[in-house]
Design a protein around this nucleic acid. Structure first.
Lengths: 341, 341
DNA sequence: CTGAAAGCGCTTACAG
DNA sequence: CTGAAAGCGCTTACAG
């Protein structure tokens, strides 16, 4: 095989004794073509190893067959949060099922995301976009809605947004249930470490946590609420801080298993027993939560499903103009030794 | 903002009172243009929110600024192997640094990979390709070399291949050292579970393992060598099998931490003590290896670095025609409780 | 330093 | 059912 020039529709046309229009119609499987010539053209394509130039095609039909995602690499946060890789897997799976390719870009600076989205859209590189995170008053969402470009969101938007396709867990309910579980174990001073407060998921979880407390006549204590990154260090540092609070909190809910690992380590170093002195529960139920030296109670948010459904929803948005659909993916709380039964 | 038509170079040209040729020259930052008009055109672009159509540009210049990767989703194997997500992270990081986008596709059937590669290349969708896995006599590698298309490989090819850009660990040496470590702990009947035997990494590791044995005057025993997937079940099942061997092996090296988790669980169920009865060591050193209920000795292969360097090497291949470069990424053996000190 | 024109490889009304 | 022609939005020798 030589390096050679690209085989074009014209080459196929010549060999088959037809026009390039006909070749094009074969490519797009047009019905207005005789079976005989179709077969002949197909054979010629095969013979020449022809494959249509995607750029030329996209330029002409204004579709790309690819969807864009932006992965935040800003904070090591996002980058090391298993949630992202998990939902990415789901997206990939969904893309695979629906025949779309994925164009992945990354933003290294906070305000870069919008620029990348614009590059993708104005550059006609994608047919739709999946947003893997959203903030309160997200400018990317605003932009996409303004130009009515198909997109779907993993997570939720501000209340009252009826135009955005979104797939999420019921984070309010999950946090509520998790808090209740710990309360039912007889705990009364329950602390919480959430992610970035600008994330809607954080707000929802805090709400669920608060309401569970209030319902049980436990007053919410601002001093027991912390916010940080999704990493071990965050858990480690806050746990050290928490250990100094008098009286010691007897429960702790954190945003991710990694945070929990960090917290558990800090507590163990100081000689605080889990779950006797303090119960620990977290989110995301990574493969290893159950293999931890103290198996962790954790909420499985089903990130793969989140990604897959976000992809499916996007396809609906592209093909059928669906807007404003909201899907809730069920979560599962796995109760393990870190919260006493 | 309206949905409207795309703003073209022509629109910008009209507004700036120049030709579209000039606009194009501004885009590509050609030196042969007066500073004054350049500034004027730039201002007009900004005013109209112009962004060049990537398809048209790619069609004309025959470059895309994107590189392609294929993620195998065939076996849950690959899909759940942290190695893939880790090296993907490295690739993304490298892409981000070098300004390339990533086009991701997936193959669901074994022989689909070559087709996707051809689609990418013939469709002019990518400037280069990163291969995340390779088999003995890999047909994708053969194809890419035949048409001399820029690519790089994470892993290694058959010996004697001097044309393929590849980045890998010294898997022979890593397995050798790991085996030696266990031998030095006084163990003599060391079993091994590797991945698919068709993978070159498996062959290399077996070689290192064998040589370490032989050097220590321990004869290699075929019956202690197993091969399977990179998952928990593989470890669990083989460990049960191993536990029945008389006399019981006193050491076990596995291909991934997940496999180790499965094995440890099986051994513990039966009442076999780790590390007293049998030492266990594995590869990949996932974040959680040290959080395991028995902290695992594991080889950190530095997958992120593998991905990043594969990306960098590919850029060299695209821009400077580099071929046949081989990079070795250092590994680190973390010795923990699963192998007695 | 700048423009007119041809070309990249497809698709799609239009005409037959 | 099929073809000639124009168009998608860029780039780039060529000429000035």
């Amino acid at each position: 095989m030589k390096k050679g020039k690209q085989v074009t529709a014209n080459d196929v046309a010549k060999l088959a004794g037809v026009s390039s229009s006909t070749v094009s119609r074969v490519i797009s499987d047009s019905p207005r073509i005789s079976k005989a010539t179709k077969m002949r053209v197909l054979k010629c394509m095969d013979e020449l190893g022809y494959y249509p130039n995607a750029n030329a095609r996209s330029l002409a039909i204004k579709k790309t067959g690819t969807i864009g995602i932006i992965i935040p690499t800003t904070s090591e946060d996002y980058f090391s949060n298993p949630f992202f890789t998990e939902s990415l897997r789901g997206i990939i799976k969904g893309a695979s099922n629906s025949g779309y390719d994925l164009l992945v870009s990354t933003n290294t600076e906070k305000d870069e995301e919008l620029k990348i989205i614009q590059k993708f859209i104005k550059g006609s590189k994608v047919d739709g976009i999946i947003l893997m995170t959203s903030k309160v008053d997200d400018e990317c969402i605003k932009y996409l809605k303004d130009i009515d470009f198909p997109f779907s969101l993993i997570g939720s938007t501000n209340n009252g947004d009826k135009e955005t396709n979104q797939v999420d867990n019921d984070n309010y309910q999950a946090a509520y249930e998790l808090t209740k579980h710990i309360i039912n174990n007889g705990r009364k001073r329950i602390s919480m470490i959430v992610g970035d407060v600008d994330l809607i998921v954080s707000k929802e979880r805090v709400k669920g946590y608060k309401n569970a407390l209030i319902e049980s006549n436990i007053s919410f204590n601002e001093d027991l609420l912390f916010s940080g990154s999704f990493d071990e260090k965050t858990g480690y540092d806050y746990a050290n801080q928490i250990s100094k609070i008098k009286p010691l909190p007897d429960g702790l809910i954190v945003a991710d298993d990694l945070v929990a690992f960090g917290a558990v380590k800090a507590f163990q170093n100081i000689g605080i027993n889990i779950p006797n002195d303090i119960e620990v529960a977290s989110f995301n139920n990574s493969v290893f939560a159950k293999h931890s030296n103290i198996p962790l109670t954790s909420v499985d948010i089903n990130a793969i499903e989140l990604g897959k459904e976000a992809m499916n929803l996007l396809v609906e948005a592209i093909k059928n103009g669906v807007r404003g659909e909201r899907l809730l993916i069920p979560y599962t709380i796995y109760k393990r030794e870190s919260t006493r039964r």
